[in-house]
Computed example of a mutant assay.
Amino acid sequence: MLTHVWGKVMGFWEEEEGLGMLEMILIIAAIVVIAVIFRDQLKAIVSNLLNKVGKKSDEFIEG
């Protein structure tokens, strides 16, 4: 009995079907929720990076 159950568990563990639609939706939903929660921090980071890029490109063009 135990070997039969263990065989079923191992069969389930080794089964590789790839990502399904539900998994993809859950991953996208988690990313959206994280983005909404940390919206202000993400805006600050992106703004800071764009300012640095602008300054560096101005330095490069001027000299």
Rank of each mutant, 00 (worst) to 15 (best):
K56Q: 15
K43C: 10
E14I: 10
K56P: 05
L19P: 01
K43L: 12
W13C: 14
E59C: 12
G20Q: 04
E59M: 15
M21I: 09
K43E: 11
G11W: 02
G11M: 06
N48D: 07
I25Q: 05
I27G: 05
L42Y: 03
L26Q: 15
I28P: 00
M21Q: 13
A44K: 09
L50P: 01
L26Y: 08
Q41G: 05
A44L: 09
E14C: 14
V33P: 01
W13M: 12
G7P: 04
M10D: 05
M10L: 15
H4L: 12
L49W: 06
G11A: 11
V36D: 04
E16V: 10
E59A: 14
M24C: 15
E62G: 06
L49F: 09
V5G: 02
F38A: 04
V5M: 05
S47V: 06
M21W: 08
S57I: 14
K55G: 00
I45R: 04
I34M: 13
Q41K: 13
K43F: 10
G20K: 05
D40V: 08
K52D: 11
S47W: 08
V33H: 01
T3G: 02
E17L: 11
T3C: 03
D58L: 11
M21T: 11
V9Y: 01
F12Y: 14
R39T: 03
L50Y: 06
L22D: 06
K52F: 13
K56F: 13
G63E: 07
I27R: 10
V9R: 00
A30V: 10
G63P: 00
G54N: 14
D58W: 13
E15F: 14
S47M: 11
G18C: 01
E17G: 07
M1H: 08
T3A: 08
R39H: 10
K55D: 09
I31M: 12
I34R: 03
E23S: 12
G18Q: 01
I45T: 00
V9L: 12
G54Y: 07
F12Q: 10
M24R: 11
G18R: 04
E14N: 15
M10K: 07
M24Y: 07
A30C: 13
K8R: 09
N48P: 06
E17V: 08
T3Y: 04
I25N: 06
L49G: 02
I61Q: 04
K43I: 10
E59N: 12
V5C: 01
L2W: 00
V33M: 12
T3Q: 07
E15V: 03
